[in-house]
């Protein structure tokens, strides 16, 4: 799925890195706990979250994620957007709540991914 499709499905606005909006993503996860996000491993993922602080951007960067969706109209700071821009991460914002946003993307074919176990 293209990031631009996510934007349409979630009726979201683009807050930064719009030049990467045609990138393809293959999996996503939704969480407010960054350590849970860090337990997942897969390329090209999208992070949906209602948490707003710089560690959200760093977590996404550590995981090589290319898109962050802030749900419930949460608005990141200028500093967070600057960090995201530096990493080439597209930041979206939607009015939808976490459950609905994840459900819409899943129903349209964007799957979750598996926790890596030894």
């Amino acid at each position: 799925m293209k990031i631009s499709t996510i934007k349409e499905l979630l009726d979201a606005s683009v807050l930064c890195s719009e030049e990467h909006i045609n990138r393809h993503v293959y999996s996503a996860c939704g969480s407010d706990m960054m350590s849970d996000v860090l337990a997942f491993v897969k390329d090209q993922a999208v992070l949906l979250t209602g948490l707003v602080n710089s560690q959200v951007i760093r977590t996404a960067e550590m995981m090589d994620m290319v898109c962050i969706v802030f749900v419930r109209s949460k608005t990141p700071s200028e500093e967070m957007l600057r960090l995201a821009e530096e990493c080439g991460i597209v930041v979206l914002k939607t009015d939808k709540r976490m459950y609905e946003a994840c459900g819409v993307l899943f129903a349209n074919g964007l799957i979750g991914n598996k926790v890596r176990r030894e």
Binding site: D32, M33, M34, S35, A39, T49, N53, Q55
Partner: peptide
């Protein structure tokens, strides 16, 4: 802040 889930 998104941490302290006992996953570190």
């Amino acid at each position: 802040l998104g941490f302290g889930a006992g996953m570190g």
